[in-house]
Design a protein around this nucleic acid. Structure first.
Lengths: 189, 189
DNA sequence: TCACATTTCCTAAGGAGATTAGGCAATAAC
DNA sequence: GTTATTGCCTAATCTCCTTAGGAAATGTGA
């Protein structure tokens, strides 16, 4: 019996690919083992179980998104940075729908604290540096960005805008412009 | 053995209550049967199975939200109607977190078409009547409302804003005002 | 009131997924 | 080349989902 040389990293990576192919909801130790051509029990050498596997995929997705956002937001400011950040989330969700779903998995606080979650919050605050907001408004603005980005992307991913005109890209552009308008008006208020 | 006189309606209603108590993710024929004090197999006389049960809970939640929104939006216009609609979704999610989660369950198109989903779209368009938008902008605006409401509510429900100051209520008020500002600016553009 | 049809909930059984325990063979170390 | 490690295996248990068929409670007609 030939060995595949699996590691926790490679197993989680294959799990992420599987999520993009069949949907995160259908990812489990059984479906992943089937895809890898090994027995379900063999996976327990690399992950602690079903929950551990799914949590690790979620952590991977959060990290990949944060990495991408770091690259895209760097060197941009104001509305350019805002659009870049939004496009990262939307683009990642389009390219990796299963991974994006995974990233929304609720985690216990200790796990969430060690995830890339705080990096995302920092990214949002970095974008807001281009707008002149005081401390109190900044928290609201971070929440506004999170709500709007996540709301649009998850509705689009769930097919809420499918098969209806105009294409969702136009709505996305309109929404990004609206966010810019709101943030600009807050700074002058 | 005493009979409980269960019906499909009562079973689904109890399922919705159970969802609010233990989370929609944990609702199944087994957990519901345990709560009702009957055997799992007995539920199959009232629902077709696990998926059918969960779908029916989702349909119930969509309908309850639409009913509530109808009542609250009636007789209001402009920013009052906008806030009323938003508060319906947020309030329903707070009171019935399990049901709200259920309402986000992806359904096949034929089921979705017979759900209260279209009523929600009509409600959003009704609110937008208070703003002077042309046809093309109206679609974008419907999507903006859906994205923002759902995005904020689901982040709040997932605990994204928990334990951080200022309280999420303040952010919610700020976001509703921002929506009003955006819609007003679109109508004058 | 009584026979009978219907309905409600039951027991029994099979199948699939999650998990643990322990074995054997392929790799790595010396 | 012998030995230790480790990767993947089989086997077994538990829980959940689902179907099939039975028994008792309810409703219906005389």
């Amino acid at each position: 019996m030939p060995r595949l040389g699996l590691t926790t990293t490679s197993v989680v990576g294959q799990g992420a690919e599987l999520a993009d192919e069949i949907g995160f909801a259908h990812v489990s130790v059984t479906t992943l083992a089937r895809r890898l051509g090994i027995r379900t029990a063999s996976l327990y050498a690399h992950v602690q179980g079903n929950d551990d596997l799914r949590t690790r995929i979620a952590l991977l997705a959060l990290q990949e998104m944060a990495d991408r956002a770091d690259r895209e937001v760097a060197g941009r400011a104001g509305v350019d940075a805002l659009m870049a950040l939004g496009d990262v989330y939307r683009g990642y969700a389009t390219e990796h729908p299963g991974r994006y779903d995974a990233s929304r998995l609720p985690m216990d606080p200790s796990t969430a604290a060690t995830s890339a979650g705080p990096r995302h919050a920092a990214l949002a605050r970095a974008v807001l540096r281009g707008y002149d907001l005081d401390e109190a408004q900044q928290v609201h603005a971070v929440r506004l960005l999170g709500s709007t980005f996540h709301g649009f992307v998850s509705l689009e991913l769930a097919g809420g805008f499918a098969h209806s005109n105009p294409p969702s890209q136009e709505s996305w552009a309109a929404i990004l412009s609206s966010l810019d308008l709101v943030l600009t008006s807050w700074s002058t208020a």
